[in-house]
Design a protein around this nucleic acid. Structure first.
Lengths: 247, 247
DNA sequence: TTAAAATGTTTCACCCTATGAAACGCTGTT
DNA sequence: AACAGCGTTTCATAGGGTGAAACATTTTAA
């Protein structure tokens, strides 16, 4: 039970502080202290360090903390030219132009998924998808794709995760995933967000490894179940073409 | 001389490690240790912590370290809808369409400048400007604008900075800056990069505070000195309009 | 094939340094 | 004027970060 961790506590805490800014732009010192469960003076020191290195700044007006320019600097180097989010962008735009709905690209990160790329529909009513969003793996079409086509080991690890919602019946969920494997795509209708629906298909690289989920999402009155199944073949085909572009 | 620093050493070091990735995508442990001047085992622990929190990942193939998805997550929250880089984007695009050269937006950060927004020229030969780039404050049109229109205090602080290039004659440089204040804009011709030229004008917010520099840059054979002076009025006017949009 | 070099990983004893309680200063509110 | 809320600073304590060294593993050289 000892679970030796070879990490640095002070750094862990500082990064927790930094990650507060993934859910809100501006934080006060006391707010952060409350959220991360540390003493004010500790957080104060951590923030001073983060500020010194440019990872946070203080808003001139409100005096509250915000993300700093070092984050921007790093984000410029996040992706290489051969990364999925770069390589697949043109194909995503093509699919968007074909279907006229918002296209997202998700990868699994432990027991969550992260949207690593998005191109927006140009319709007046549209799904707006922000790159970088971290979402649960338990709901949504792309979640189910990422789980359904994962290695058995990965799938089990995720489902056994303590953060997994207990009310979900694992039996029926697993059956649902197996169904997705056989049809080759997944749909969700007002599953995570009311008024929104999505279709998703897996992207495998040339070695056959699941790399990402390609999702089409939009308002549920336009993206009806019928319409989604109608789009599915085009999405799967697009996902195939994308896979061929990856190492 | 003691200069009490109320920062956390371990965190400082971890952030230094992280900042390595601002100059290159992939790093090996030993490389990083050499760069930041720490022992392998120390860096190993710091990297383990950063990895645990998702700030770095290890490339499946090379086993080297890369930036992780937490950085992407944070970068999505870098700017609020009322931040310059967001508010000024449409006006930047307008200027780009008018002049057909790449437009950049810079802010000063201590003794450097950071490109916080950019829209690219659509010409075949163009200046490519990446958002997040950190550049010296000693050369380039926007540098001179950011210094020329800064508070006297700020200007002096920067020029007194130990990182300031010693070979630059402060007398003539200061005179140059004063000239820029009177003309209202600055130019640079193959100053920082051979083959590149730029014109820049200051953006003041409604309170009259210098917030950013607006720069037009392109290849020096197209953006000749004559052409730059010709463009200047339009750039200044655009910068004025931008300032009116800022609090 | 062996030897050597380089890279990443783990252990461990020492002592530096991160920690949180408490007190302080400041600003705005009642 | 009294109060509440926030950020800042100080300080004694012990908990934890540190780097040397040894180990494991892969890559390069001979």
């Amino acid at each position: 039970m000892e679970e030796e961790k070879r990490t640095v506590r002070a750094v862990e805490r500082a990064l927790d502080v930094l990650l507060c800014f993934a859910s809100r732009h501006e934080w006060g010192l006391t707010e952060i202290a409350g959220r991360v469960g540390l003493h004010k003076s500790t957080v104060h020191r951590l923030l001073a360090t983060l500020e010194d290195k440019g990872f946070v700044t203080r808003d001139a007006a409100t005096d509250k903390y915000r993300l700093g320019l070092s984050v921007l600097e790093l984000s410029a180097h996040l992706f290489r030219s051969d990364d999925p989010s770069v390589v697949l962008l043109p194909e995503m735009e093509k699919l968007r132009d074909e279907i006229s709905e918002t296209i997202s690209l998700y990868v699994r990160d432990r027991s969550e998924r992260v949207r690593i790329q998005a191109v927006q529909s140009m319709q007046a009513i549209r799904r707006v998808a922000t790159v970088g969003a971290r979402l649960p793996l338990s709901v949504g079409a792309s979640s189910k794709v990422l789980l359904a086509f994962a290695n058995d080991g990965d799938r089990e690890t995720v489902l056994a995760d303590p953060s997994w919602p207990a009310q979900l019946d694992l039996q029926t969920f697993a059956k649902q995933l197996d169904e997705i494997v056989s049809t080759g795509y997944a749909t969700s209708f007002e599953e995570r967000e009311p008024g929104a629906a999505a279709v998703a298909a897996p992207i495998f690289n040339r070695s056959g490894k699941l790399v990402a989920a390609l999702a089409v999402s939009g308002p549920s009155n336009r993206l009806t179940p019928d319409r989604m199944h109608e789009y599915a073949p085009a999405i799967i085909e697009s996902a195939h073409r994308m896979g061929a572009l990856l190492g």
